[in-house]
Design a binder for these strands. Sequence first.
DNA 1: GGCCCTGGCAGAACCGTTTCTCCATGCTGC
DNA 2: GCAGCATGGAGAAACGGTTCTGCCAGGGCC
Lengths: 395, 395
Amino acid sequence: MPDAPYDRCAMTAAANQSGRRATASRRLERAGIRDVAAAAGVSITTVSDALNGKGRLPDETRSRVREVAERLGYRPSAAARTLRTGRSGLIGLTVTTYGEEPFTFTEFAYFAEMARAATSAALGRGYALVVLPASSRHDVWSNVALDGTVVIDPADQDPLVSELYRSGVPVVSDGKPGNCPVTAWVDNDHEAAVLEILDHLSEAGARRIGLLTGTSTDTYTRLSTEAYLAWCAHVGQEPVYEAYPAHDPAAGAVAADRLLARPDRPDAVYGLFDPNGTDLLAAARRYGLRVPDDLLLVCCSESDVYAGTEPPITTLSLKPRRIGTTVVNLLIDAIEGVDSGTGVDVSRLFQPRYRTAGSGPPPGTLMPTELIVRASSQRRSPRTTISAPRTPGEV
Amino acid sequence: MPDAPYDRCAMTAAANQSGRRATASRRLERAGIRDVAAAAGVSITTVSDALNGKGRLPDETRSRVREVAERLGYRPSAAARTLRTGRSGLIGLTVTTYGEEPFTFTEFAYFAEMARAATSAALGRGYALVVLPASSRHDVWSNVALDGTVVIDPADQDPLVSELYRSGVPVVSDGKPGNCPVTAWVDNDHEAAVLEILDHLSEAGARRIGLLTGTSTDTYTRLSTEAYLAWCAHVGQEPVYEAYPAHDPAAGAVAADRLLARPDRPDAVYGLFDPNGTDLLAAARRYGLRVPDDLLLVCCSESDVYAGTEPPITTLSLKPRRIGTTVVNLLIDAIEGVDSGTGVDVSRLFQPRYRTAGSGPPPGTLMPTELIVRASSQRRSPRTTISAPRTPGEV
DNA sequence: GGCCCTGGCAGAACCGTTTCTCCATGCTGC
DNA sequence: GCAGCATGGAGAAACGGTTCTGCCAGGGCC
């Protein structure tokens, strides 16, 4: 250990230190970087470099500083670091809110699973996730420094997304955006999924397939319903569907009942939402319909309770884990890729940031779904297809 | 509008502004408070005061500044504000992690609901929630400035809680802490809940009540099991229980099977975890046991699927919404109550902060649970319906 | 021997707020 | 006519890091 420079530095550091807090004897305060520098006999530059693995320092100094920092229980201030570097290590996750009750994001297993995967993926890359409501504009959003945001199912011309875009915060959306300046998006191939289900039900012998759908205008509901209608038009079946507000748990049972009470009662039903399987099963019982003999059933759900119902119900899984992981990784890629961190990067100063050069539509990824076939949708095996089989890629 | 002071101020502000960035022509940058001050012809002090409702300013100035800020799309930097005020508006929520898969917090509906309520309560008071894993010490925790933290079920001598305590971050725990310096805690009255269930089963005719419990040492499992054993000792029944790792979804079914395969097979079972109802029902079917005639069943669950099983199963609800709301409100009370914000408050410098003076055990709140009695635990008294007809509206 | 290069580090600017301090002005009461 | 006070607002010091710049010493090279 070289002694001469150590002594010199110690004096400088001590002077620096005493020059800072001339007033009170502040004991019990958290150790700052200056304290570490003083204790280690180096400058704060050296401490910062040593702790962050930067600069040109011999390993000896580096380890000594690290040891002193450890001994003092030094924790760098996240706020100061964020202020200087412009990076907080936080990414936002919007959740939709319905009416009075602020949150419905754990209502459906899809969101819960997706949020879990997103949280996990973010942490795996050193980021933490902040859950924020899609409404309530400046109130909360302005109070937290975000490096980027995952927006679930943005509306057309979503004001929140616009605001974030203006602020230069990258946004990746779960759900294909309508007309939003998002950096990227991820979604399931809802058209393909619905067509696969309808074909599957047809092959099982269904002649009139009904749909239990929602009244809201989110991408999922819209695309699925459109795909259903398109399929009906294609095979020449009259559409039979009932829509209800999906966020109201009681309304689903009523809608299921309505659907099966119709004069043109379907002999197969696909329910877009998680509880529809249970609701439809109960409704079928009430009307004395046997599943799958009198009624074929499929619903979209992430819950495995449908493996244990009587009969087990065929479900479509949207694979929310995969969505959550992908969406977060895309977002962090965008955050770390652009990196307007050091100073002003003049080259892209007058271009929209975080967009692919050329500014076409934002890049999107369609992820496949998974149909888990169970007893509720299997009736007559041979009784072949009514409609021509179609490839998943077809829209 | 007074003209003379406006002109004077404008000149000062312009000088101030130009004195700042002599170098580049930084267009497209987000407007800072200096820009607002320059545009409004006032000092940055005035802008800050006007926007934050502080200082002594005439309404005229206040509204003018506000309008200019609005026009410029000014958003204060959260990082700078946090650095200066020491408050980030963020509170942490720990989640437990099991083995490889980092997250199990939405595994049980309890945590999902609790987290949802906590998020909602925090947002209602102007805070945002950050989800962080209970493990992974400095990595992530140091990178985010937290005003306080909700810790779910801290371990005895929990290192994370100790660390947070040393950092002066208030901690409120969900689950009665063993030996942790938490500010406050909230928990269900697990003893009372278990005793209520056991009494309920006894009254329904149970002679030998079994328990399906967990192998982990968290408060919930421990207290519930202890209450069960105490009850057994009290009434003179030999304990009959099986324990399994609750985080393993497959193990539950096996344990349920084991419990019903025992030579001293119970005629009633209480399952501590959410999936136990389904598992026990399936196991009972396998052994030809009718519920509730041959086997009474209760399980702890927040899921409403048990209202629709055949037969419907009696559940104990821990009311996670109430827990989540309470725990967050207690935490924010602690954050805002102590408020060592302005400078060093010498009076409490040498006392442990965020504890009740006198430093006895931290204040805790026991919240009641709710037993939802359904067919599975009702056998002999009036020998009424096994499954009541239910209206479509009922969930 | 001058020069450049490189390693090792100190100094100081800077990030964008909040807030403490203090000054100028006009008015009141005596 | 002046002390005293309220009002309105400017100035500058923090907050606690990161990082750009630059100094100094030593060694290789011509």
